[in-house]
Design a binder for these strands. Structure first.
Lengths: 127, 127
DNA sequence: GTAGGAGCTGGAGTGCACTCCAGGTCAACC
DNA sequence: GGTTGACCTGGAGTGCACTCCAGCTCCTAC
């Protein structure tokens, strides 16, 4: 199965421009072309694109994604280093989640505070 | 208790430049000045700065923080709208956490995959 | 055979959130 | 009274990750 750039964009959640941009900066290998010179993405290409969106969503900078892509390109010998990168990235994602959760507590506290103000206000009116 | 801009920066985790920038764009009220024209931050100022860093950490854009700051400036009458903003923001933070957790699963899967490759490799050598 | 739509390239432009800088002031210490 | 160090202002510059554009080609459908 192959996909036009528009289909690849839709399925990966990236824009058409972003797909070409990622290719230009070496984040994705240039996909095959059809007889008219148009990009045709394979299922493998799609899988990689989707994985990239996960890395992006979790805040990995493009510079690091590119490093990962380059290691991947070098084949099985770099599997250990890639695993190490994912390990470290996973730790940073976990830390980020913890950070967000701690901020959530502050938000909860603030919201409770506002709710109390509201109650006082209503009681002030109806009393 | 009052603080110099350097102390405010250290305690809030923002840089000195960012403190002045936030003031310029209306995110924080201009603090008092000493006889020499230097900013002196109060404990209240500090509290607000720290709260802003929480909003920033949770991904609230500056535009929205400014909106919140403006409502706060208008006093108690806007408490309901501010509460509403925090409510919505909390929902987005929760969604963000869920998103990160779902990506974590993908990372776990990938890492497991790499570990299996490693095992196979070692067995291949030692066998 | 032509009109329309998708895709192509190289390069310029955008939005966000800072960050840095030059040139100046001010208070304190030697 | 001169030097030092923190701070001041207005404005320019930076890094990131896209996003947009002009001018072109190519296939399809009428």
């Amino acid at each position: 199965m192959t996909y036009s750039i528009a289909q690849a964009a839709e399925r990966s959640g990236l824009s058409i421009d972003t797909l070409r941009y990622y290719e230009r900066i070496g984040l994705v290998d240039p996909p095959a072309r059809d007889s008219g010179g148009r990009r045709t993405y394979s299922d493998d290409d799609l899988g990689w694109l989707v994985f990239l969106t996960r890395l992006r969503t979790t805040g990995m900078p493009i510079r690091m994604m590119r490093e990962y892509a380059q290691l991947r390109h070098l084949g099985a010998a770099t599997a250990g280093r890639r695993k190490q990168m994912l390990y470290e990235h996973r730790a940073s994602v976990r830390a980020r989640i913890a950070e967000l959760q701690s901020c959530l507590e502050v938000l909860d506290y603030k919201i409770t505070h506002y709710e109390q103000i509201e109650h006082t206000f209503i009681e002030g009116i109806t009393a």
